[in-house]
Design a protein around this nucleic acid. Structure first.
Lengths: 187, 187
DNA sequence: CGAACCATGTAATAGGTTACATGATTGT
DNA sequence: ACAATCATGTAACCTATTACATGGTTCG
C-alpha cells in the first residue's frame, strides 16, 4: 500500500498532523501520487494500531485540537524495507486514449479540437512544473536544508516534466497526421 | 466509468462474449487500460439491465455455453456521447517515484541498481511496443479492413511508445546525475 | 458578507484485484 | 502427467472518491 509508505516518508522528516500531511502531498508529490483527507485520517489511525506511529493530541484554544503523529522505530524500519523493495512498472490508466482508440467515428475537425484541447492542458501542466512547482521545491530545500533529499525530490519532478514533454510531442504529431489526412470519414 | 465505454467500443465492432472481450483488452488497449474477467462479467450483466446491450446464449456441446453480447441503439448513442465528452488529464500513480522521492537514505550503489533495473523494464516494454504489439495491430487492421479505425489504434500505440521513451531518457539522465555525485550519503 | 483556512472525521459508493469454484478439451 | 485454452461466474478484500457533518477564525 503506497499511501502508507508515503505517509511514513513524510513523517520520517518530522512529526505532523493529517492536515499537514495533506498539504505536503499537494505541494510535493501531487504530480505522481495524491490522497484525500478522508483517506489519510483513517489510514493514520490504522498505522498507530500497527505500531508504525504514535499520536499525541495537542490542545488549542481558538482552533480545533491537532493530532500530531510521530514515526516509531518500527515505522522507520518498515519505510527502509519498502524503499528497497523492487517494484514492477505501474500500469497506465488513460481514459483519453480509450476515446482516441475508438475515435474512428468522430469527424476530422472534432478530433482535432479534442487533441488541441489536450495539448493545451499538457502545456499548462508543463509550465506549472517548470515554474511554480520547481520553485516550491527549491524553497523546501532551502527551508529544511535537506540537500541530498532535495536532489531526489528534483528527480521526481524531472520525471513529471519528461512525461509531459512526451505527451506534448505525441499531441503535436497526432495533430499533424490528422491534418494531413483526407476529409470526412474516409481514407 | 471507462471500462463500460471500452466494452461498448469493442462491441460496436462486433457481438462478442466476455471472454472474447478480455482477449481484445489484452491484445490492443492493454498498454493504457486493462480489466479482469471477474470485473468484465458483472459489468456486462449490468449493461444488459441498463439497456446498452442484449445477450444471447449460444449452446455448445463440447465446450461451455457462450453468452454473446450485442450492442443496442441506446448503447451506440451512449458510446458516441462519451467519445465526445471532454476529459481532464488523468492523474498519475507511480509508486516507484515515491521510492525515489524518499530515497535519500539509500546508498548510491543501491539507488543506481534500482534505476538500472527500472531502465531495463522500460526498454523491454518499448521493444514489445515497437515489435510484437505493433505487429498484432497491423494484423488486426488487415483482418478487419478497418483502415480508419486502425489509424487511431496506431495513435494510442504511439502514445505508449512516446511515454516509454520519456521514461528511458529520464532513467538514463538520473543514472548519470547519481554517478556524478559524491560517494555515500553526503553531498 | 462570503470565501478560504484550520482541523477533525464518518458513510456511502465506485472501482479494481485476488482467491475460489467448475469442468471439458487440446497441446507438450 | 501437466499446462493452457475455452467459458462462466461469486466472494472477499483493498483502495479511492464523493458527499455529509461540525465549527471557529481570518482575509478580502
Amino acid at each position: 500500500m503506497s499511501l502508507k509508505h508515503a505517509l511514513l516518508g513524510f513523517l520520517s522528516y518530522a512529526p505532523m498532523t493529517g492536515y499537514d500531511l495533506k498539504r505536503y502531498f499537494d505541494q510535493s508529490i501531487h504530480h505522481f501520487w495524491n490522497a484525500n483527507l478522508s483517506q489519510i485520517y483513517p489510514t493514520l489511525s490504522r498505522m498507530v494500531e500497527e505500531g508504525l506511529l504514535t499520536m499525541e493530541v495537542e490542545h488549542q484554544e481558538d482552533r480545533p485540537n491537532r493530532k500530531v503523529y510521530t514515526i516509531t522505530g518500527v515505522g522507520r524500519e518498515e519505510l527502509q524495507r519498502w524503499l528497497r523493495e523492487p517494484l514492477g512498472l505501474s500500469p497506465l490508466r488513460v481514459p483519453f486514449l480509450i476515446q482516441i482508440f475508438f475515435g474512428g467515428s468522430l469527424e476530422k475537425e472534432e478530433m482535432l479540437a479534442r487533441l488541441r484541447h489536450h495539448l493545451a492542458l499538457h502545456q499548462e501542466r508543463l509550465a506549472a512544473y517548470q515554474g511554480p512547482v520547481r520553485e516550491v521545491l527549491r524553497q523546501n530545500v532551502e527551508a529544511t536544508g535537506l540537500e541530498r533529499e532535495g536532489f531526489f525530490w528534483g528527480l521526481t519532478l524531472d520525471a513529471g516534466i519528461q512525461c509531459e514533454e512526451g505527451w506534448l510531442k505525441w499531441c503535436e504529431e497526432a495533430i499533424e497526421k490528422i491534418e494531413a489526412m483526407g476529409d470526412g470519414h474516409d481514407e
